[in-house]
Every structure is written in C-alpha cells, then in structure tokens.
Design a protein around this nucleic acid. Sequence first.
RNA 1: UGGGGCGUAGCCAAGCGGUAAGGCAACGGCCUUUGGAGCCGUCAUUCGGAGGUUCGAAUCCUCCCGCCCCAGCCA
Length: 554
Amino acid sequence: MPERKSFIRDIIDEDLKTNKYGGRVQTRFPPEPNGYLHIGHAKSICLNFGLARDYKGFCNLRFDDTNPTKEEMEYVESIQRDVKWLGFDWDGRLFYASDYFEQLYEYAAQLIKKGKAYVCDLTADEVRKHRGTLTEPGKDSPYRNRSVEENLDLFERMRKGEFPDGTRTLRAKINMASPNLNMRDPVMYRVLHASHHRTGETWCVYPTYDWAHGQSDSIEQITHSVCTLEFADHRPLYDWFLDALGIYHPQQIEFARLNLTYTVMSKRKLLQLVEEGFVNGWNDPRMPTISGLRRRGYTPKSLRLFADRIGVARSESTVDVAMLEDCLRDDLNKRARRVMAVLRPIRLVIENYPEEVVEELDAVNNPEDASMGTRKLPFSKVLYIERDDFREDPPKKYFRLSPGAEVRLRYAYIIKCTGFKKDEKTGEITELQCTYDPETRSGLPQSSRKVKGTIHWVSAQHAVDAEARLYDRLFNIEGPGGEDWRDFINSKALEVLKGCKVEQNLQRAKPEEVFQFERVGYFCVDEDSRKGNLVFNRSVTLRDTWAKIEKKDN
RNA sequence: UGGGGCGUAGCCAAGCGGUAAGGCAACGGCCUUUGGAGCCGUCAUUCGGAGGUUCGAAUCCUCCCGCCCCAGCCA
C-alpha cells in the first residue's frame, strides 16, 4: 500500500535530495514510561516506524526516563508490549535516556566551561518570579555570573548529594529577555533524591526534558526528530544546546497530536480514570489506550489503517471516532468468522417440526472469503431468536417477525409466526409459535422464494450460554474538556448481558479471537472467558440500517 | 496582541500560480438467505475575511478576524 504523503515526507525527500544526512533516515519513538500508551501514541508509532520502513532507515525505541518520580517498570514493559503488538520492531535499538546520564553530565560540564551554563541557588518560586511574564522580560538571576570554577565545583557537589532537593539547579545561560519563555535560562538539572527505576540511587541530579532530549537524539544520530506541536516553542532551545555543544544536529519536526471524539487523551486524565475507578484498569475496553483497544477487539492492522487514513499535518484536529470504527470493520469484514449468536434470546417453537429430529445445516464461515469454508449448524424444533427480531405491532418497513408474518431463518427454513405467549403482568413476550415450510430449506428450489427478512437463530438444545459485554463511547459529549470533564462520563458505556445463546462451535474460542455475530456486530473473546463461562466483548456494531430508519421515523 | 503555530465540506485531509483528490459521516438508488458486505450516484462555483499582484490565485503580497500552544526544578 503506497504510504500517504505528508509534509514530513516532503522534508525527508528534500533532505535526501540535498544529501543533508548522507542519505540516512533515522527516527525514534520516545515515550516517557509514566503511563500506558494510547491511540495518539499509536499515531506517532506508525509515523516514526513507518518513515523508517519506507525510507529504508531505522527507528529507535527510546524511553525518555528523566523523571524518576513518575516513572515505573510496569510502564516500560507495557510500552514495549504495545509497540510490538502494533506490529513494529525496534530490532535491538532499545534505548533509555538514562543510558546517557553520564554523557549528559559531561556535556553539561562542557557548557559550564564555555560559560554557557551556571548553577543557580534560586528556589522554584524565585525562579518563577524572575522569569517575567508573556509581555515583560525576566530578570537575571543573581547567581548568573558565577565563575566557571565555582560553577564546576557546585555542579559536582550537586551530583555528590551535598544539597537538598530544590535548593539548586543548573541553568543554561541564554537570555532572560527572550520573547520565547523557553529561552529564559531554562533549567538543565534539578536536585532530586529519588530512586530511578533503572539507575537506582546512582543519581540525585536529573536532567530535564529540554536538556536530555536533543542530546539523546544527537547521540543516537537521529536525522528527523518528530514530536508534537506543543514542542515547537522548544525547537530554538533544542537547536541552541546542540550548537553550543557543537555536536551532531538532528532536525526537530512537529506535527499535530491526535484527538478523538467522545474520549480523552491526556495521560493525566487517563490515569485519573484508572485511579478513581471510573474504569477497570488501563486495559479496560472503554479506554483509548492501545491495551484497552486490544482487549476491546481492535486489531493492529485496523489501528495502522486508521493512522494512514487520518494522515499527518500541523493543524489541530479532532477525528470522528466513527472513522476508527470503520477501520475495524474494514479489517474484520474480510477476516472474521461469522457465527450465530443470540444476545437477548426469546424462545421460538416450530409447531409442525418433528420432536426428536436434529438436522445439520451448512453455514458459510465468511462470505467474503470462500477459503474459510463452511460448518454445520444443528437445527431443531425449539430455537432462540433475538428478542428484537419480533414485534407484536410491527412498525412500517419492519422486515422481521410479527404475528402472521414470514421470515427466513438464515441457512434454514422460511417460517411463519402463528402465535405468541405473553406474561400478562409484565407484558413481556415469553414464547413465539411458528410453523415452517419444509420445502424452503436452504438449497432446495423453494428456498429462493422471496421473503423480506432473514434472521439469525440458534438451536435451544445445542446452544451454549455466554456473557456479552457491550461497550459504548466513554463520554456523552464529543469533547469532554474543562475541570468537570468527569461529569460527562457515559455511565452506560458498559452493559453486561448474561444468558446469551451462542452456537456450540464457539465453545473452544480463545481470548482475542474475533468473530462476527451475524447481523449484530464484531465480538472478541475476553481474557476473562473460561470454558463453560464464555465472555465476549463487543468490539464494534455492524452498520445498522434498520436502526437508522427507525430513528428517523421515530 | 510577547513569542510560536493553525484556519480547504459536518469530521479528517490532498493541493505548492493553470481553474478544488481521497476517506469518514450523511443522503438517494441497485444488489443481497447478514436491513452486513459490495456497487452506483449526490454532497465546496469555492478554500477564515477584505484588498492587491497576475491573462489566471486555495496557492504570491498587505491588512484584518478566529482558534490552539508557552510564564513546571513535567514530558
């Protein structure tokens, strides 16, 4: 599939033409291990690894682990799992910013020696006050002009742990009057007596993102350092550090991060959803995390397709979640095995069908792919059909069962509804009575008779019980923002159905296997599923033309 | 209004001076033993607005308007 072009590819094409990097293309995906990856990261992964693949280059996986207070091993493990699952391979190029701590420290000392960095004794609060505002310049720190010797000595003592947290920082000496706040003597190191998930107690000074990122890119000989738009303001600083050091200089390129309707994407909010119990963990199928989408039944291919379809640009955008859903259907339509499953069963008795007979009927596994073959379906006198496939008073254009109406049972017979039982107290229909026409069995000449509707069914005595978890959008509104974003959480985003009846072929289905429940939707087997207690997640519904008609006619 | 970025259909998004791709959604129709899938068609005389340059402008220039990001020792 030809990759869609983008402004980033234009830049790379140009760099290749001018031989800027000797014909190399080297990218990197640099997550901070402080949470699980979400679909926005998937966009970035597909972008960075996709660039490397298409230009015969490489893409590194690098953990940006410069803040030990927020990072954990659990996250670095989940991130590797998710990247691999998405279908990408860093092929041995797995790095950590913490691998470069010693080198970074050395670089910092170089800047001090060049008079381009200094140790500052201002507290965080004082630094803020000195920084100025958007419209007023900042004031120089009183420690800005310390001698190289004093700075070197202090910096070394910071590393040795002589000073408490927050008492001193190493700052770049740039310009406190710069209109770009990032250039007003940004902090390079802070004192932090915290245990790091990889370096343990080795360090008590940690580099900031601005100081670590560009230099890490340089060390790894990255050519195109692709990041999101909010870092565009940092690019002058990124460039300044590299130039001040006089080392290999990659090019930072920014693109717009992904936003999706009816969900939230910030790591902070996702963490809150998990910690405050609105969902059951990072991989809850309602979450936009990669692991959540995976459990929901999304396939790596569908996510890659999605990344291709939405493209890469610099304009802030919010993609309609319907686009994502369509990508899943697109993939699963061609691959998913079709099965019969009745979610809300209602008993149906075929009165003129013999008591003890069980027929084996042929069913197609996937009409899109004949190579997937056929299977046998048992048929008998008592069946279950979907409650929604019967109406006592059918609305206009309703093609399914109703008193006196005919309908085709998929792969079986045409039946006619002759009566029904109703619980007079609740008004609930408890059983349907039908007759069948023996001449209309699928394959027989009479089976080509036209009937308006075809419905799915399972044989009552052969069906297997199952649980279905139906998911809907996590939020009730398109863009849940603001401080009260939690108020818009959709309390009906999960509906659990027990006592569903599915065809017996499903008995041995394993977690993550996906199926199309005919006429209903795509479902995958959940990890909670057990033999004898099958659990299915609804990944996405099928397009439902009838629902649309009914909604329109109200 | 200090700096940076962005405005093309309901939502994404091509377009790079020669007369508005594509996808999603929506809406018609065909087809159908999934109201699925598939197929056909409709959907921007106009590109945030106003001027200007040009034979010709979404593309170049000027001004204006709107939205997003930045005042963490987070990334």
